[in-house]
Design a protein around this nucleic acid. Sequence first.
DNA 1: TCGGACGCTGGTCTTAAGACCACCGCAGTG
DNA 2: CACTGCGGTGGTCTTAAGACCAGCGTCCGA
Lengths: 206, 206
Amino acid sequence: MTDLIRLLLVDDHPVVRQGLRAYLQLEADFEVVGEAGDGEEALEAIAASEPDVVLLDLKMPGVDGQSVLERLDEGAPRIIVLTSATDGERVPAAIEAGAAGFVYKDIDPDALAAAIRTVHAGQALLAPAAMRGLMAGGSGAAAPSLTPRERQVLGLIAKGQTNRQISRALGVSEKTVKTHVTNLLRRIDAADRTQAALWAVRHGIG
Amino acid sequence: MTDLIRLLLVDDHPVVRQGLRAYLQLEADFEVVGEAGDGEEALEAIAASEPDVVLLDLKMPGVDGQSVLERLDEGAPRIIVLTSATDGERVPAAIEAGAAGFVYKDIDPDALAAAIRTVHAGQALLAPAAMRGLMAGGSGAAAPSLTPRERQVLGLIAKGQTNRQISRALGVSEKTVKTHVTNLLRRIDAADRTQAALWAVRHGIG
DNA sequence: TCGGACGCTGGTCTTAAGACCACCGCAGTG
DNA sequence: CACTGCGGTGGTCTTAAGACCAGCGTCCGA
C-alpha cells in the first residue's frame, strides 16, 4: 500500500480521540498525523500536519466544528463530521459549509474506515435513511431562512419568554411579536412555541 | 500488585469505551472485565462479571445511567459517573442514587486512574468547584423531586407534545395530564410548558 | 387507624397563544 | 411602475393551556 491517508482527529474528549486512534492505527493505509481538542487547535493542526481527511466533532467548546468548516479554504482536507444521534440537526449546516459527509459516533470500525476511504477518493458519503428527510428539508428549513427579526424573536422564545415579555424587550407591540411568531412557526414547521424553543435549542439559537 | 481493580465500562459510544480501555489497560492494578453499550447490557454485565468499579455514562438510549443506578442493590460495585461539561445537571441525581462520584470525559488518564483507586478504596471523589454550587442546590431543585408520572409527562412536553397528545400516549384523560403539568410546573418553578421543556432539556429529561 | 403521597378524574374560568383577515412604509429589483 | 421582502400594526376569532375548586381509591409509614 503506497497511498497513505493522513488523518486528523478533532474532538474535545480525549477518550474519543484515543478510541479513534486505536481503531484507525490498525488500518495499514491510515496514518493518524495529529489530534486536536477544539476548533482553534484543529485549524493549527490542519495547517501544521496537512491531513487528507479530518474527523471533526461539531460540538466543542470555544471554536466549534462549524466554525472550523467555515474558516477552511478551497484546498482544505476532506472533512467527516462526527455526530451523535441527538446532535444530528447540526449536520445539514455542516454539509453546506463544506463537510464531505458525516458518521455517527457509534459507527463500527470497518464502516468508519470505509467512510474515510470513500471520502478520500473524492466521493460523497451516503446519508443514512433516517437523515435524508432532515437533509432534504434541512437547507430550506434551517436557521438561515429566518429573517433577522424572526430569529431574534425565536431566540427569546428559547429563553422561555412570553409574547408580552418579548414585545417589551424589543420595544414593539405584542401584535408584532405574534406576527413574527406565526411566521417563524410556519418556516421551521413547528406547531407551537414549545416546539419552536426546542428547535432553537437544537440549532444553537438563543 | 496483588489487588486488581475490576472495571466495567458503560457508554453507548464504542470509541469512548475503546479509548477508556486503551487508557486503563496500561495500569497494572486495573483489569477491564467488560463493556456495555446501554443500561440493560450494563446490568447484565455487572451481574456476569462482578466489577469492583463501573465507569457509567448517564446519557444513553433505552435504559440510561440513572436507571442503572436506581436498579442496583446495596452490594453493588462503586460507580463513577462519566459526564461532559454540558451534561453536568444530571450528576446530583446520580450521586443521590448512589454513584460514588463523577469525572468529566475530558479527564486526563492519570486523574482518571486516581479517581478509580480513590473510589475503590471507599472514599468519595471531591467535586470540582464549578460543580459544588449545582450540587449544593441540586438536590432541592433537581429532578428527583418530581413524581415518576410528572417526570414522564415532562419528558413528553420536552418532545413538543400537546396535552392531548400526551393523554393519548399515556392512555389517561387530558384532564389528568393537565393536573400533572400544573403540578410539575410548580415544582420546577416554571411559568409555562415552554419553560418546562427548556428545563427538561437542561436536566437531561426527555 | 390516620394522614400523606400518588395517580386519576370532573368542573369552572381566564387568558395567552396563534391563525387568518387586513393595512402601512421602506428598500431593492426587474 | 409593479412586485417582493421586511418590519410594523390593527381586528376577529378559536382554542389550548393553566389555575384552582372538588372528589375518588390505593399504598405506605407513623
